[in-house]
Write a protein that binds this DNA or RNA. Structure first.
Lengths: 124, 124
DNA sequence: TGAATACTTGAACATTTGTGCATATATTAA
DNA sequence: TTAATATATGCACAAATGTTCAAGTATTCA
């Protein structure tokens, strides 16, 4: 196999250098759509903050309201509310209202599996 | 069930308010250790950037070197190298040297499963 | 040996992020 | 209606992040 860099000049005049042209081509063929990649990375990013992750972990087994989560994490109600919104936007968490109280819980089983596998990896 | 806030005064004089004392207590009992939570959130965070995620996705099926990944993503070699270091620090990616070239690949099956389940969730 | 190549590293910078404060909305109960 | 409560939201700002540039290693080959 040729192991020196290939120089590829694109239409726009940019020069691209690579070693394994075939692998780069394969990766390009198999790449997922930009909007999917963005949504996927946002999903991980939202779990990538310790306080948000703590919220999600707490909701693994029990429904909680904003002030419970504030008491649990030591954050203000406002901070919790901000974070829950981000978690809800990405469908990691869902909510139901019961009078003045809004109960939050995990949105689906995928989230639990994501946490379980992440933890398996982090612990090994 | 009592649905008004409980006011709890801690030893340090701080007042904590919550609605479901039992649930907060349960969450506190079941919480994972801080260092585990930090490592777990770092694992998600590192996947939470679109370019790093693109790198990891590309490595799902094939070993690649720094400049291949640079050609694939459109980033500089330096940027790729920085990101690979973070991925390696968290054991998402491993490397082997062959002469001047260093080949990167996914570290284990957990990473693939994390990507698969994340994508299932993001697509639903 | 010295030049070329593949990659790494540290510093600097603009951008993004998480949080708290003040204020606003929604619901209940008096 | 009014007061109290539970949560949400816009703004501001310190802290963290991703990238580039320039310089540094490590390896190969002439």
């Amino acid at each position: 196999m040729n192991l020196s860099r290939i120089r590829l000049i694109e239409e726009d005049g940019c020069e691209i250098r690579m070693i394994h042209f075939d692998r780069v081509e394969q990766a390009r063929r198999e790449v997922i759509a930009d909007h999917e990649l963005d949504r996927l990375s946002l999903t991980y990013k939202v779990l990538g903050d310790p306080n948000r992750l703590k919220i999600v972990m707490a909701l693994k087994n029990v429904e909680m309201c904003v002030c419970d989560l504030a008491a649990f994490t030591g954050l203000t109600d406002s901070a919790i509310s901000h974070q829950l919104r981000r978690l809800k936007d990405l469908a990691l968490v869902k909510s139901r209202r019961d009078g003045r109280i809004i109960y939050y819980s995990l949105d689906d089983e995928h989230v639990k599996r994501l946490l379980t596998i992440g933890l398996e990896h982090a612990r090994e």
